[in-house]
């Protein structure tokens, strides 16, 4: 905190922070306001006399109603939730075990294997989806949720593994040694001691993984084709942009509703999640 006169506080703290907040929150505001404006206002030319893009006096839920009644938005939501939860669960389980093994079991090449896993995370999805499409087709997974549940871990597992590796390294190894002297097998020591201690790390890995799969676009676009199988990001953009016509109201309402679960997940775990990022385990 900056000490001194009040004006200094305003100039150096509140004003920059206010600007920053404005900058960050404006897209959300825009999304909210657009999703409740009637079409008549949305498509009013910019030089009309009553043109007022930042406010509306006639808020409406028409767009939301349209989403749920005229499109398959409800199934998209459900698909996205199902896919995100499943792929997050798979990736977390694998990531926790792999992270533990890489950080704690001193097997040969553990270091280079860890780096290798990180590098696979860096391979862009835009490159990877082509061979993956082949695999998805061969296993006849196309147009099913499993095409995504099984392909998202290709980037989620490296991500979770890497995050958990860092977290496990920060857990003092004496904890585990003490448990092993106390009579726990390696497995029990991990289950009863290391994993409970690493809960904040696991939560933050989980939230990140959930968000990444919730927002994923390319794989979902390529591997799913029928409208009822789609996820929110793909469904909203492919069904509500027809040719060059943008259905701005439903689009924004869809985006807004789609981001709510993520926001809830974040706010729910925010304390753990911050602790997980700063990675401190106090003895």
């Amino acid at each position: 905190m900056i000490e001194g006169a009040i004006w200094r506080k305003w100039v150096f703290f509140y004003a920059p922070m206010g600007l920053f907040l404005l900058f960050l929150l404006f897209p959300f505001y825009w999304m909210v306001i657009t999703s409740v404006r009637p079409d008549g206002e949305l498509y009013r030319p910019w030089n009309a006399i009553n043109y007022n893009p930042f406010w509306t006096w006639k808020p409406t839920l028409d767009h939301v109603r349209y989403l749920f009644e005229e499109t398959l938005f409800a199934s998209w939501l459900w698909n996205t939730m199902f896919i995100a939860l499943m792929s997050t669960a798979i990736s977390l389980v694998c990531g926790v075990f792999a992270g533990y093994a890489l950080s704690r079991l001193n097997f040969p090449f553990a270091g280079s294997l860890g780096t290798g896993i990180f590098i696979t995370y860096l391979v862009p999805q835009t490159l990877l989806f082509i061979p993956l499409a082949e695999i998805v087709r061969n296993y006849r997974l196309g147009d099913t949720p499993w095409s995504l549940i099984l392909t998202y871990p290709t980037f989620l597992i490296p991500f979770c593994t890497w995050l958990m590796m860092g977290y496990f390294k920060a857990v003092p190894k004496e904890l585990e040694e003490c448990a092993r002297i106390d009579g726990a097998s390696r497995w029990q020591a991990m289950l009863y001691i290391i994993i409970p201690v690493a809960i904040p790390g696991i939560l933050s890995a989980g939230i990140f993984a959930f968000t990444l799969s919730w927002n994923e676009f390319i794989y979902a676009l390529v591997f799913l084709s029928s409208p009822e199988q789609k996820t929110v990001p793909v469904g909203v953009t492919s069904e509500l942009i027809r040719g060059d016509v943008f259905f701005w109201g439903p689009l924004m309402a869809g985006a807004l509703l789609g981001s709510i679960p993520v926001a809830i997940a974040y706010s729910f775990f925010v304390e753990h999640y911050v602790a997980g990022l700063t990675g401190s385990v106090k003895g």
């Binding site: 003092p172 004496e174 904890l175 040694e177 003490c178 448990a179 201690v197 385990v281 003895g283």
Partner: peptide, 10 residues
Amino acid sequence: MVFQNYALYP
């Protein structure tokens, strides 16, 4: 064994 940093299960 008693460790230098106690290693209590937090």
